[in-house]
Computed example of a mutant assay.
Amino acid sequence: MRRVVAALTALLVLTGCDDAGASPAAATPSTAPAAASGGACQLLDFPVVNAKLGLQYGAAAAATLENTFTCVLQPQKAPLPDLILSVSATTIGPDIYATAVQPKGAAPVQGLGAAAYQRQSPAAEGTGPAVEVGWLAGNKRIIQLTVHLPAGTGDDKATELLPKLVDLAKLIDLSSL
């Protein structure tokens, strides 16, 4: 499931699809709220995200494919750091989530949804390290929040960002009820 969401998100980012998934979408200008992009962006607010994470997002794009809604936030003039939010409807419970969706080796997160995890990933080609928080929301949604940092960013910066991302996830979880 995680690979499907990641592949879908990458495809949507590369194709620049709008909510219908069929036509190019322009990034939301910095004067418009992230929610104006629709989709999962309706759960995000630039000032709140920027304050929580200490980053400067100003562009948003959303897409929908079947039962998955995504949102990508980026700085106005750079591709990274990006923030990707995906939300998918599900019928699974916490036990299946923990065994089938949660990545092996991820650390549990208390106080977030019915089941939740956090993890840090090393730098990949073209990016720096990434941090991720995923959870099964009480309203039967699988939600994943990921930040990819720019190439050359040290692992220590990702380690500092992870608890901030967990705090943002807890705010998103409350807004998705």
Rank of each mutant, 00 (worst) to 15 (best):
A26S: 12
A26V: 03
P75H: 02
A98Q: 12
T99D: 09
A26Y: 06
D45Q: 14
P75I: 08
K77L: 12
A78G: 05
P47N: 05
L55R: 00
N67R: 11
A40S: 04
I84G: 14
V87Y: 08
L43Y: 02
P79Y: 07
V72F: 00
T91N: 08
A32Q: 15
N50M: 05
F46I: 01
K77H: 11
K77Q: 11
E66Y: 13
N50Q: 03
P81E: 03
Q56D: 10
V49G: 00
S30L: 06
A60I: 08
N50K: 02
Q76F: 08
T64Q: 13
K77S: 13
L43Q: 10
P75D: 09
P33Y: 03
I96R: 07
E66D: 10
V72C: 01
P81K: 00
S86I: 01
A60H: 09
L73Y: 01
L65K: 10
S37R: 13
A25Q: 15
S30H: 09
T91A: 09
A26H: 08
F46T: 01
L80A: 06
D82C: 07
A61N: 14
T64V: 14
I84N: 12
S88F: 12
G93M: 14
E66M: 11
T28H: 01
V49A: 01
L85F: 01
